[in-house]
Design a protein around this nucleic acid. Structure first.
Lengths: 182, 182
DNA sequence: AGAAACATGTAATCGGTTACATGATTAT
DNA sequence: ATAATCATGTAACCGATTACATGTTTCT
């Protein structure tokens, strides 16, 4: 998904400035599945403006810098619907964590355990934050995605807990048993 | 993970040519979690050679083009171990599919169902292919990763099956009930 | 006083994807 | 014949990340 389509998606849920679009990628459902920085959002909005997919209105704010609020045009809405209809290629699991685990045998046991624990801790933190989200007000789409995220994180958590000792045992056995002398 | 580190990883499992490294990203465990094309592998190998992380030996083959077989140097092995020790940022779920599902309400019911079915079909295909892999000979690392992939795909499959009708019902209700007249 | 949030943008850089360029052999 | 596999590489392009540049207000 390119940043232009991502911006169209955020704007489909309501008018927003570039800054507000950035914030949308930091919390809630969107933050877990896509990301974009200022350096890609602002140029994307310029291109969308040129293409006629959005319009912009400058809003002067008391005590705050001016805001440029973008709105979807009918053409922009159509373009977004079109993007939704385009089949995208299947998402890879693409994970640095899993890549490292492929080489678990090359890592010292302590380092392996630290990597595993850090990953589980991150998953649990996300799980907790997500459990607190109230999804009553959001639509079925975001609810589905939220539930999907929960299911994935829970499955990952459970799998790692169940299998980390297999990994750790192998790592410990491959190390010199000289540690008993320490 | 940049392509250089990915190449180091493949070479840590044994000497290989650029072509063979590319193949490693197409099958088995690696293919599910990382990807790299010729256009990034060859330049990466050149840079690794310049950095002294790999050495190269030209192998003349009867009836086939010459091969350049790369081997890790001790420095390269160290650099890879170092990369494994470096904490990487947490993997996002980053999914085009989920992004689209966020906007399920904007899609026609048929298109939504098609997207859902295509995704499930892809997951099941992968699940079947993975079930056939014999993991007896590989190490604990690749076995862990293989099992992780299976667990994730199974969880995704189960979640979609359980919740697709919620999505579909909402999509059908939001459409005009004029279809009974057709 | 200093940091953080609000707000927008540009420029340099870096790296990945895609297409191009070449060429032999083997299988259909 | 033609496509596919084996084999290596370069060049153009595209876009994302990062840093830079600017300026106010509010909170600590």
């Amino acid at each position: 998904m390119d940043t232009k389509t991502l911006c169209l998606g955020v704007l489909a849920h309501g008018d927003a400035s570039g800054y507000e679009i950035k914030k949308a990628f930091e919390d809630e459902a969107l933050g877990h599945i896509q990301d974009a920085g200022f350096g890609s959002i602002y140029p994307a909005l310029s291109r969308l403006l040129k293409a006629g997919h959005v319009t912009v209105t400058a809003e002067t704010q008391a005590g705050k810098p001016d805001k440029k609020v973008y709105s979807l045009t009918p053409a922009g809405r159509l373009a977004f619907l079109d993007a939704l209809a385009t089949p995208s290629k299947f998402d890879q699991l693409r994970s640095d964590f899993l890549f490292k685990m492929l080489f678990a045998e090359l890592m010292p046991a302590r380092q392996l355990e630290a990597a595993l624990d850090a990953h589980v801790a991150e998953i649990r933190g996300r799980l907790e934050r997500m459990a607190g989200d109230d999804c009553g007000h959001v639509g079925v789409g975001p609810q589905f995605v939220h539930g999907f995220g929960l299911a994935m994180y829970r499955a990952a958590d459970a799998y790692i807990e169940e299998h980390k000792y297999e990994l750790l045992r192998a790592a410990l056995m491959s190390e010199q048993p000289a540690e008993a002398a320490e």
